[in-house]
Simulated scan of single mutants.
Amino acid sequence: MLNALEVFTTVVVGVMVGVEFCVAVFVSAILAGLPGEDGLRGRTHGARLLGAVMPFWYIGSLVLVAVWAVAGRHHDGAGLVVTAAALLILSVVMSILLLVPINNRVKTWTADSLPADWKQQTKRWDRFHYVRVAVIIAAFALLAAALA
Rank of each mutant, 00 (worst) to 15 (best):
K119F: 07
G14V: 03
F26Q: 11
W125R: 02
S28V: 11
H74N: 14
V11M: 07
G51E: 07
R48D: 10
A4T: 13
G79L: 00
L50G: 14
L80E: 13
R43W: 13
H74S: 14
L142H: 08
L49F: 10
V67W: 07
A145W: 09
R43S: 11
W57L: 10
V81C: 00
A52S: 12
F26H: 11
R48Q: 10
S61I: 00
W118S: 09
A141G: 09
V106R: 04
G77Q: 01
A85C: 08
G77P: 07
S28H: 15
V25E: 15
A138G: 10
G77Y: 04
V53C: 09
D38G: 04
K107E: 11
Q121N: 04
R73F: 15
N3I: 12
L98D: 12
E37I: 11
D112A: 10
L143T: 05
G39M: 06
A139H: 04
V63W: 03
T108Y: 05
V92A: 10
V70K: 04
G77R: 00
I96R: 12
G79R: 07
I137V: 14
R48S: 10
L97M: 15
I102N: 05
C22G: 14
G42Q: 07
N103Y: 06
P101N: 04
V27D: 05
L143K: 05
A139I: 01
L147G: 15
A86Q: 02
L88G: 00
S91N: 08
L142G: 14
T122G: 00
L62N: 03
V13E: 02
V82I: 13
A29P: 03
A148Y: 11
N104F: 04
A71L: 15
V82M: 08
E6G: 14
Y130L: 15
E6C: 04
G46D: 08
V81N: 00
L90F: 13
S113M: 03
L64W: 07
V93C: 04
Q121R: 12
T83W: 12
A138I: 03
V23Y: 15
H75Q: 10
H45P: 00
T110V: 03
A141W: 09
L62V: 01
A69C: 03
G14N: 06
L50E: 13
V7K: 09
E6L: 12
A24D: 15
V65P: 02
P115T: 04
V15T: 15
A29D: 12
A146Y: 03
A144L: 12
V53F: 14
E37Q: 13
G72R: 05
C22Q: 11
G39F: 08
V25A: 11
M16C: 09
A144H: 02
A134Q: 04
A134W: 08
P101Q: 06
I89K: 00
F128N: 12
L62C: 14
S61P: 09
